[in-house]
Amino acid sequence: MGLTPEPNKDEEVVGDLSFDPKGMLDADDGAVLTRLAQLVDAVDPVPSDLVERSLFAITLAGLEADLMEAAYLDAPLAGVRGAAAAARADDTAPAEAKTITFTHDSLTVMISLSPSTGGRVRIDGWAAPAAGLDVELHRPGADVVTVASDEDGRFSFDSVERGRASLVVRRTDGGGGAVSTPVIEL
């Protein structure tokens, strides 16, 4: 009796359903993995525009701007705007402002996205420390739009078409390198 293999020992299980790295999977192994791949994708699908955003980010990589890190701060707003947060589920409610903070070394840029007319988006931004900054808005297939920050570090784009976009921030005096936000979906 003492020699009876423990059924849950790895080696014993493998003995029965061994996978030889150089061998072939049996048909059920392959089918289970294929099904699993479909479930993995269905349970946590890749965001639909992630590929397009990545492709646009690659085209901006030539700008030699350091990537800023983003923190998405829509969670604190959700408590204040319960109804809007609830409406978010249907994805058709652009009424809620979204705030994103980007950081790189000592520079912090916060932007707030809110609806503009005609389904477009207004971007209000604030950079700290408040040096003179040029802020470029890059969008796929569109000309770059540049605005300057005011003395308090504020800047805005009044009416921007929805879609993928990235901001590139440069100091007006040419000091320091350029930094860019990740490509975001407006």
């Binding site: 299980v13 061994s18 996978f19 048909a27």
Partner: peptide, 26 residues
């Protein structure tokens, strides 16, 4: 060890699946 580790993981999964009933996966 990836092959054998994967083999063990897959084997464990198959064992658990087999305990749940007789399903056709292929």
């Amino acid at each position: 060890s990836i092959g054998s580790t994967r083999g063990r993981c897959l084997a464990k999964l198959r064992t658990i699946l087999d305990e749940q009933g007789d399903f056709s996966w292929a």
